[in-house]
Design a protein around this nucleic acid. Structure first.
Lengths: 213, 213
DNA sequence: AAATGTGAAGAGGTTCACAGCG
DNA sequence: CGCTGTGAACCTCTTCACATTT
């Protein structure tokens, strides 16, 4: 399955779970698009779903139950995952709380930080360890996913340690593009960058037609 | 300037500030690409920068100082911005701390929540108010940017209140596509969705060639 | 000689339109 | 007749290649 479709599949899954809860058992691509606030075209939905197999019935629509199951499988929603967080400042802490509260399939298995004042503390029973222990602990606990919530300067070395310890998926909050030899999927979330997109838009729309300052 | 270039411009700005701090006064598109870890092609950099005006000199490269100034202007880095946060759970709290610590140009001007146990608390001197007050308070304080950190079900109404109060840029952490009549730029950050991209990739790469379950 | 600026080619993903099936 | 499944057109952004300028 192609990359850019995955976020959409996740959205489909969420919407279909709601339809399921509302007692519906079947849905059309038009109906699903409406459920998603018309943010996605029905033809896009059909193309995405057809790539998963012959899930629809022409003239009828899609049966919701098998669709939800198939999506859950493709998205890896059925497995449990062990997460290693590197950097336990506000961001790392908030992420841990948020993701465990939101989805039971995620478990914070290990937490690392560089600061001696944070090392030794506990969060939900998980000790904060020194980043030097990443290699042994991550490997020992079999963490699948790494979360990088350290300053930009420390991100690359954190990523290398995680990848070296066997982690194959990384969520990176640092504003740096990580270079890794291993086959690792990296998703970047740059909060300050997102804010800049907003301020850029506000600036250019506030000064409608006036060449630069 | 076109949308997808903005995050790159922001990355250029950051890299150029570092080059500036390192005492360099000029740089080529190849040099800047190297600074960015070769994540962006030199030709892409030239195309992006040429859209801002005649900033380079053929045979020489770019003078860093005017480049940084021009980028700062385009990105709206020179203004100060007043942020209204709706939803002050872990995510809203972490965002407030993170963004104010990271960039001085952002100020948390107002905080709203629905829960009576949170309303009335203070964060850095800013009171947490009832979401019903969004319209009057946001307008009165002249907030430019809204941040939505509430559950999906409450996101749409929060967005409408913010937009109605004059906010023209929203950072949305809820997994919903917001529908607004007003001309508002919305950036979505879906943490659970990003995690699903990772787990989807892990699942499909763990089971190399085996058709669905 | 060196590196920018840019038209043209290319790649990737989305939308269209309709054939095909129930 | 209704709705899926899909090849083709379309669109947008990226990469290439080279003419241009200092």
């Amino acid at each position: 399955m192609i990359d850019p479709a995955i976020p959409r599949l996740y959205a489909y899954h969420r919407a279909l779970r709601e339809a399921q809860a509302a007692g519906k058992s079947t849905i059309t691509s038009d109906g699903l698009a409406a459920l998603l606030g018309d943010a996605i075209a029905p033809s896009q939905i059909r193309k995405d779903l057809s790539a998963l197999g012959p899930l629809g019935r022409r003239g009828r629509g899609y049966a919701i139950n098998p669709l939800v199951e198939q999506l859950a499988w493709v998205l890896g929603l059925e497995h449990d995952w062990r997460i290693a967080i590197v950097g336990f400042g506000y961001l790392g802490h908030a992420f841990a709380t948020f993701i465990t509260a939101r989805e039971a399939r995620f478990r914070i298995a290990a937490i690392f930080d560089r600061s001696p004042s944070v090392i030794g503390q506990h969060w939900e029973g998980v000790p904060v360890r020194d980043v030097a222990e990443i290699d042994t602990v991550v490997r020992e606990l079999g963490c699948n996913i790494g979360v990088i919530a350290v300053p930009a300067a420390a991100a690359q070395s954190s990523a290398q340690r995680l990848a070296g310890a066997g982690v194959r998926a990384i969520l990176n909050f640092a504003p740096t593009s990580l270079r890794l030899r291993e086959p690792v999927i990296v998703r970047n979330i740059d909060l300050a960058g997102e804010m800049s997109i907003l301020t850029s838009w506000l600036t250019s729309s506030e000064t409608p037609r006036e060449a630069r300052a």
